[in-house]
Computed example of a mutant assay.
Amino acid sequence: MAANQDTVSKHSLCLQSMEDVKRVFDRFDANGDGKISSDELGGVIKALGSETSADEVARMMEEIDTDKDGFISLEEFAAFCNAEADPLGGENSEKELREAFELYDQDHDGQISATELHLILTRLGERCSVNDCTGMIKSVDSDGDGFVSFDEFRIMMTKN
Rank of each mutant, 00 (worst) to 15 (best):
A58Y: 03
A58R: 11
A58N: 12
R59H: 14
R59S: 15
R59D: 15
M60Q: 08
M60R: 00
M60W: 02
M60G: 05
M61D: 03
M61K: 03
M61R: 00
E62Q: 11
E62R: 11
E62T: 11
E63Q: 12
E63Y: 10
E63K: 14
E63M: 10
I64G: 07
I64K: 01
I64C: 01
I64S: 04
D65R: 02
D65I: 02
D65H: 01
T66A: 14
T66R: 13
T66Y: 03
T66E: 13
T66N: 10
D67G: 10
D67I: 08
K68R: 14
K68M: 03
D69R: 10
D69F: 11
G70V: 01
G70M: 01
I72L: 07
S73Y: 05
S73K: 07
S73A: 10
S73M: 08
S73R: 07
L74N: 05
L74I: 10
L74T: 04
L74P: 02
E75A: 12
E75R: 11
E75Y: 06
E75P: 05
E75S: 12
F77A: 05
F77S: 05
F77M: 06
F77Q: 00
A78P: 02
A78T: 09
A78L: 02
A78Y: 01
A78H: 07
A79D: 12
F80N: 13
F80M: 14
C81I: 10
C81S: 09
C81V: 15
C81L: 07
C81N: 05
N82M: 13
N82Q: 14
N82C: 12
A83W: 09
A83M: 12
E84R: 11
E84S: 15
A85V: 06
A85L: 04
A85C: 03
A85E: 04
A85N: 07
D86G: 05
D86I: 08
P87F: 02
L88C: 13
L88V: 12
L88F: 14
L88Y: 12
G89F: 03
G89T: 08
G89W: 05
G90C: 03
G90P: 00
E91W: 08
E91H: 10
N92Q: 15
S93W: 02
S93K: 14
S93A: 11
E94A: 15
E94R: 15
E94D: 13
E94P: 05
K95W: 09
K95E: 13
K95F: 13
K95Y: 13
E96Y: 15
E96N: 14
E96D: 11
L97S: 03
L97V: 01
L97D: 01
L97Y: 01
R98D: 04
R98Q: 09
R98E: 00
E99T: 09
E99K: 14
E99W: 09
A100M: 12
A100V: 03
A100P: 02
A100K: 09
F101R: 00
F101E: 02
F101N: 04
F101K: 03
E102Y: 05
L103M: 12
Y104L: 12
Y104Q: 08
Y104G: 08
Y104C: 08
Y104N: 09
